[in-house]
């Protein structure tokens, strides 16, 4: 039986706006509900602080970054300190530049439609990446 690595999910989890919260909830939904056996999460704060385990995984294995806004902190940091992410998701592509609106900043949960949609898309990317790795 061949080894097929799990896919690393890296959410920005940004505190300043709704998009960061959405990125976090979507990553957690994939990790715990949609693809619990095929994914791991990389803790971005730990990754940024220089943890060799987190950076080492992202250097060798495929990652999907989920960013809350166009600054793309998760994607840029992954590329800078490890390897280019296999897939880059920007929450703004789904819901527009919501960083300006603070009304939902803390209120998004894993039952929201936008979280569901992004989580489903990430799960599809996970399947595609794992299939490609299986074929190789």
């Amino acid at each position: 039986m061949s080894f097929i690595p799990k896919v690393g999910l890296i959410a920005c989890s940004g505190e300043e706006c709704t998009g960061g919260n959405v990125s976090r909830m979507a990553a957690l939904k994939v990790l715990h509900k949609l693809k619990p056996h095929d994914t791991i999460t990389i803790c971005l704060p730990l990754f940024l602080a220089g943890d060799s385990g987190e950076r080492g995984f992202a250097e060798v294995f495929p990652t999907i970054t989920i960013d809350g806004c166009g600054k793309l902190c998760a994607a840029r940091s992954t590329a800078k300190y490890s390897s280019e992410p296999a897939v880059k998701i920007n929450v703004e592509d789904y819901m527009g530049p919501r960083c300006r609106g603070k009304e939902e900043q803390w209120r998004v949960n894993d039952g929201s439609a936008i979280v569901d949609k992004i989580a489903e898309d990430v799960a599809k990317h996970v399947e595609e990446l794992r299939d490609a790795l299986r074929d190789n």
């Binding site: 920005c12 989890s13 940004g14 505190e15 300043e16 706006c17 960061g20 971005l44 704060p45 940024l48 600054k71 902190c73 998760a74 840029r76 940091s77 800078k80």
Partner: peptide
């Protein structure tokens, strides 16, 4: 107020 941790670094 708060600020994104990743933004501080990036």
């Amino acid at each position: 107020d708060t600020v994104c941790l990743a933004r501080i670094m990036m």
